[in-house]
């Protein structure tokens, strides 16, 4: 039987390629999720019922159904309606739209937890609604929602493994391929497991902690 170091020497580059694709999927999906979360979260708080209803429906659908089904819809069903996405695009779009729905609730919750006095002070200074939100409320909401966003981004990273099911050559896809040809399941999936864990634990978590520290310092709520 092949030693683990021989296994890594042989298949390491493919794991790296897969991990790179996973990282890119994660970054693109995260950007999409953040944008969707902001827009949908703000729409949920709109005084107007139409945007509120649209956002609520979106959030309900994307939180109430499984990511895998959404991925298949976007990749296999949307083409029937004339919207064809390449598998790589379909992958991060599905993950981003799904996690964006969860993020929208974080955005909304964080905005609502900024003390009412902050809104009132901004009104008393005659700031417009947009100025109040952008310059007073969101910077404070941001600090409140960073920790739960850290968890959400880790969920997002794990969620990207599903894109292997539409044959995007991510880390999970490579692990399955290697397993299929070598039948070294423990090595193949064990390596994938370790890389996912390392990306979450040693990249996302410290990055979010650092961001949190920086924001908190700027807020300097001693």
């Amino acid at each position: 039987m092949m030693s683990y170091s021989a296994f890594l020497t042989e298949y390491g580059p493919r794991f790296l390629d897969g991990a790179t694709v996973t990282a890119i999927q994660t970054v693109l999906a995260a950007i999409l999720a953040i944008v969707i979360a902001l827009v949908a979260g703000l729409m949920r708080l709109s005084a107007n019922v139409v945007p509120r209803w649209v956002a609520t429906t979106y959030i309900e659908i994307f939180r109430g159904t499984s990511l895998l089904v959404q991925l298949y819809w976007i990749f296999f069903v949307l083409p029937l309606f004339g919207i064809t996405l390449e598998k790589f695009t379909a992958g991060f779009v599905a993950v981003g739209m799904n996690l964006g729905a969860y993020g929208a609730e974080l955005v909304r919750g964080a905005i609502l937890s900024v003390p009412r006095g902050q809104w009132e002070a901004a009104i008393a200074l005659n700031m417009t609604g947009a100025q109040r939100m952008r310059r007073i409320i969101l910077p404070q909401a941001m600090v409140i929602m960073l920790p739960p966003w850290g968890n959400l981004l880790i969920e997002l990273l794990k969620g990207t493994a599903l894109v292997s099911l539409i044959a995007v050559a991510d880390l999970m896809f490579e692990a399955k391929q290697i397993n299929g040809t070598t039948f070294l399941s423990a090595q193949a999936f064990g390596t994938a497991l370790i890389i996912y864990y390392a990306m979450a634990r040693f990249v996302i978590t410290p990055a979010m902690r650092g961001l949190e520290r920086r924001m908190r310092r700027r807020l300097s709520r001693a």
């Binding site: 006095g117 902050q118 009132e120 300097s220």
Partner: peptide
């Protein structure tokens, strides 16, 4: 205001 409401 009673509670200042400065922007932190």
């Amino acid at each position: 205001f009673q509670h200042f409401n400065l922007f932190p």
